[in-house]
Write a protein that binds this DNA or RNA. Structure first.
Lengths: 224, 224
DNA sequence: GGCGTTGGTGTATATAATACACTCAATATG
DNA sequence: CATATTGAGTGTATTATATACACCAACGCC
């Protein structure tokens, strides 16, 4: 038993993961539908309690896998939310994480205890349980900030992608159009991506060159 | 009793506050000397467990006040540390905060349970308990990053200060010398500071104009 | 083979960042 | 009280970076 076992009414620790993707030309977040009668009609960010000797990230991965079927994604810590009243049923402190995925790489399936799992555009979220709306908003803000000085966008794209796809990701997250020539100049200067053999024909037009990220770990980069 | 009361061996929540100041031309952190025999010779970042219905920031302020005598400082969340082995005596998840203070504004006094409280230069820390060395390192890194695009530096300075003092704060945190004319041009362009009446004579030279921060809340700013 | 569609490229201009040296006003000194 | 010393305060020229902008290429489709 912990040395710290009995002095206080303790809070419980949970993790929540805000999973973003770009789908239908929109930034979307992954939500699960709550089944408990107290939360009828509400959705939530996938997450749950941290077990005894389990690390925070481990717990985040476990709940993500159990509740959405997702595995093998990168997560990074967003912020910890600890308002004593954030959960009406007890004192839960939640460590929130962000993940970015290419939505077509993951088959979604949730467990019995939830009513479904689905993508929702950031502009157009359903009713969210607890303080999850605040969490998602903060995650979107952080994403928007970090895309300008890190290679965080890599999570959203498949291993091989075109410059136009990459540019669309930036445009959607930043919410503004970017000049094609300037974008290409800058992104190639950073050296975070690299051309790879092969072209892709995706319609009645000239085929596009393919690129990949040079490093797939997070790193800070001067950009845009 | 919490609905979440009995399912797991729960972790306990703590907060730790890395307090920075600039003193003797160096970036320094506030540490308390541990008294418990298990930690003889070790120092630690001021912090402690969060009580039942207490908010995270409230707990951080309370421990800071109890263990160092400091009150009325700004804190902002750094990151949450939750490695199951970070505390050898039990599972403690720590939410770490950063605070920046003007050291001469606070009289230091610690409680009976600690052996003392003192400032230590970042380069030259004593042995730190738990994972507090990692916490302090990360706090310093974050500070260095944020000083470039926020008004975070305001906490380090007295209400009224000279441009040279402000520049020294930037130089010490960034670890590089800055051109005086360019610094003044840029910092005044941002409009985060404003000249105030009165000059200060501090030696055998022309007296300096005084400035103050326009807003004393955190804000993002384009800078340096 | 002509049309529609997206891929791919360079240059000129404007803005921002950097490098750089002297005078000013106070105190200290002989 | 004349002179030296010290940090305060100021502007411009140069370089680097960011922005604005238009046409041809390669494919599919009819």
């Amino acid at each position: 038993m912990s040395k710290y076992g009995r002095k206080y009414t303790h809070a419980v620790i949970a993790t929540d993961v805000v999973v973003f993707t770009i789908k239908d030309e929109k930034l979307q977040a992954l939500l699960i539908k709550m089944k408990k009668p107290e939360f009828r009609g509400y959705w939530a960010v996938p997450g749950g309690l941290v077990k005894g000797e389990e690390g925070l990230e481990t717990a985040a991965f476990r709940h993500l896998s159990e509740k959405t079927g997702m595995r093998g994604v990168y997560i990074e810590q967003l912020q910890t939310f600890g308002d004593p009243k954030r959960d009406p049923f007890g004192r839960v402190v939640s460590v929130a994480y962000i993940a970015l995925v290419s939505w077509d790489k993951h088959e979604l399936k949730t467990s019995e205890q939830y009513g479904g799992v689905a993508w929702f555009p950031i502009a157009g979220l359903p009713k969210l349980a607890y303080d999850h709306e605040e969490i998602v908003r903060m995650a979107a803000t952080r994403l928007k900030a970090k895309i300008e000085y890190t290679n965080i966008v890599r999570g959203l794209l498949p291993r091989r992608f075109t410059l136009t796809e990459l540019q669309r990701a930036y445009e959607i997250i930043l919410g503004k159009v970017i000049d094609k020539r300037n974008f290409r100049k800058k992104i190639l200067e950073t050296k975070i991506i690299k051309e790879v053999k092969g072209k892709i024909s995706s319609g009645a037009h000239r085929p596009a060159r393919m690129y990949r990220f040079v490093v797939d770990k997070p790193q800070a980069v001067e950009m845009l």
